[in-house]
Design a protein around this nucleic acid. Sequence first.
RNA 1: GGGCCUGUAGCUUAGCCUGGAUCAAGCGCUUGCCUUCUAAGCAAGAGAACGAGGGUUCAAAUCCCUCCAGGCCCGCCA
Length: 558
Amino acid sequence: MDFKQSIINAVKKEANVEVALEVPPNPDLGDFALPCFQLAKALRKNPAQIAQELAKKLAIKGIARIEAKGPYLNFFVDKGTNAEKVLTAISDDALYGSSGEGKGKHALIEHTSNNPNADIHVGRARNSIIADSVVRLLKFQGYATDVHYFVNDIGKQIAMLVLAANGKKPAYEQLLKLYVDFNAKLKENDDLEQDVFALLKKLEDGDAKVRKQFRGIVDNCIKGQRAILSDVGIEFDSFDYESEYLFNKRTEEVLAALKRTGKLFTDEQQRQVLDLKGFPEVEKGMKNPVLVLTRSDGTSLYPLRDIAYTMDKASWAKGRNILLLGEDQKLYFQQVAAALSLLKVAPPEIVHYAFIVLADGKMSTRSGNVVLFSEFAKEAVERARKEILARTPDMKGKALDALARMIGHGAIKFSIIKVSPDKMITFDWDQALSFEGDSGPYVQYAYARINSILEKHKRKRPKPDYSVLTHEAERNLINHLGRFPDAVSQASKNLEPHVIANYARELAQLFTAFYHSCPVLQAGEDRLVDARLALCIATQSVLKTALGLLGIDTPESM
RNA sequence: GGGCCUGUAGCUUAGCCUGGAUCAAGCGCUUGCCUUCUAAGCAAGAGAACGAGGGUUCAAAUCCCUCCAGGCCCGCCA
């Protein structure tokens, strides 16, 4: 039984009240605390007095000391017992931190689903990076995962690119410029817009040649996006094409099913419209709570195809069904969720993320006012390379490349994941690519330092005497290691990878504090050396796992 | 006009779901620390009316209401 439960049981036995414990704000105040206000009513005494009395009465196995401090009762666990418990748990379990809740279950995650019209920019990459961490978290929890990308391959943007390409096959890197230039032309030339729509119409009518043109542009673009994301370790299992839903029967089936709910009506312009009255979130957010599903000519609109696709995903997902979407899609997705609920299909769990904006305004692919993810990643690696060479001037070749990539990519991922997705980010090169403080490289550095110690000392003692780990820095580090499973559970339950980023940074901080105040190899006594080595090994293991959950590699040295 | 999100130190954030002891970090600033396991580091210090006001509670950054500021969204784009 863990300490927490023992305390709760003991208090219940003594006072007959079910209490909640908390972690004191400051380690000097113990490992667990009981605010006695919650007992005051039942016992009809003042909290400080209750704390005093309980401090005298309670005796709990594994708890070395119980102290009353004002209205709080503080519990100090026996350091040796705690150290042994936490450190053996880590060394015995390669999956320490995983709850195993996903064993035998399946999770489908759709993310990125960027318009296949240009190079991906950092705002969209926020989607990919957060989602990739979610995927890793769920895998770690035991889920079999399937990562999907929905390719919006039949939009106006693609039609524009087909026209702009003019029969040629533009390279991926040229697409953005083509798209931006075409948008500029479009502004001045109304006829061009007619051409765009005419082309789209041909596509929807199933014109084989046009379909092939679209597919050519799209596949080229997806290939490029995929390569860029793959380069930073973000992979997909399947690419689902929206055009499939243009030509298969799924949308008709959805339409028929919605018709049977009695909520579908044809408006005065002959469009098929879904009535969403009775769905409070949608009603509150819209002047007129409806979702338009078809054009006047009966052809499908995006929401209809999306509903059909989302239903397919719901049937593929055997456990959790997760979707990452920009905050601009919040209301829209509530409309889709409402439609799904009419069809008795559970909507996916959604993670919405806010935009990354530039100091001079919103990023816009259309105007070309963007920071491309590819240049962001390139710059990160370049800066990392400079930092490495400033420290180890003789490093070169593949070793240098590999390390620069690890550090550069680590900095990028960490800086994006660590911020709660609700928060809008104003992009700043120096801030996003910081290698110190609250950053990926800082955590990687702690890992590399542990590695350096372990390299120098490979001796292994089967059973260290953990009771010698009594230093404050050791205790703080051990306590934090013990909290890793909670951090993982919270992150995977609420789909909050930033919890892991913050956990990892704190762990690295506590380790570095330990590193500076507790020599390991020069600790003196053998048993202290052995115990501290065991602490290093455990910390390294958790750091590696935590960074792995963020998609960040761990360099052996840096 | 309505809905959702955000507002915590000069700057960037964690903490808010699940209320509890002097609000926790990073950057920047001041002062120390590299002939001892990697200074991408550590230690110490200055710096916060937790957007404003009300309410609930023994207790509010956290829950409720109002207001202010910024972002996003609100019918044949995707």
